[in-house]
């Protein structure tokens, strides 16, 4: 097989506590669903390998604590993300309203080139729906994002949404890949590339520990 670029992307799951971020991650990486779930208190991650347009893409998916008191800390993870899922729960109008706050924080703390998609989870609970599909679609258009309604429970639109965000990140960074591919015929860690380009607010040299 011909030599292909192999890249690593970091994707971040953001949204209110309880919208199902961890369930989305478990469904995508392990194809499992756990009905009763303890809140994520901290930042977890899992790895997944995809192939997009013949390019092997490894994605590191970070699952964040959505509770309000942790938001000051989790903002620090934004700056290392290439893609961000903004997740709300279609049965929770409140979580949908908060998407605007999450989006605003992303604009402030994430790299400029970060790719975003809007995800309305729990699409299987139609009888409890509080947010119409049209509302989500309209908000996504306003923000210039793709929009998916998903269900971690029924595995609806899970692969589609994750693959789509990875595609967007790949497209956004294609120029860098082609540029480096011409001179470096080795594997490429895009996240490291971005660090070298000074996209991080704080250099790793000044820190004792690295966030990831």
């Amino acid at each position: 097989m011909a030599k292909q670029y192999d890249v690593l992307f970091r994707l971040l799951l953001l949204g209110d506590s309880g919208v199902g971020k961890t369930c989305l991650l478990c469904r995508f990486t392990d194809n499992e669903f756990h009905p009763s779930h303890i809140s994520t208190i901290g930042v977890d991650f899992k790895m997944k390998t995809l192939e997009i347009d013949g390019i092997k893409v490894r994605i590191q998916i970070w699952d964040t604590a959505g509770q309000e008191r942790y938001q000051t800390i989790t903002k620090q993870y934004y700056r290392r993300a290439q893609g961000i899922f903004l997740v709300y729960d279609i049965t929770s109008e409140r979580s949908f309203q908060h998407i605007m706050k999450w989006a605003s924080d992303v604009d402030e703390y994430a790299p400029e080139k970060v790719q975003k998609i809007l995800v309305g989870n729990k699409s299987d609970e139609q009888e409890k729906r509080q947010v119409a599909t049209e509302q989500g679609d309209k908000l996504a258009k306003a923000y210039g994002m793709d929009f998916f309604e998903t269900s971690a429970f029924t595995n609806h639109n899970i692969t589609e949404s994750f693959t789509r965000l990875a595609e967007l990140v790949l497209q956004a960074n294609k120029k860098d890949l082609d540029l480096l591919g011409g001179s470096l015929n080795d594997e490429l860690n895009l996240a490291d590339l971005e660090e070298q380009e000074g996209l991080c607010n704080v250099s790793d040299d000044t820190r004792k520990s690295c966030w990831c």
Binding site: K56, E187, N189, D192
Partner: peptide, 12 residues
């Protein structure tokens, strides 16, 4: 140098 959470080529 290339840690497991970074990408690697098959058989590299």
């Amino acid at each position: 140098v290339s840690s497991p959470d970074e990408l690697a080529v098959v058989g590299a």
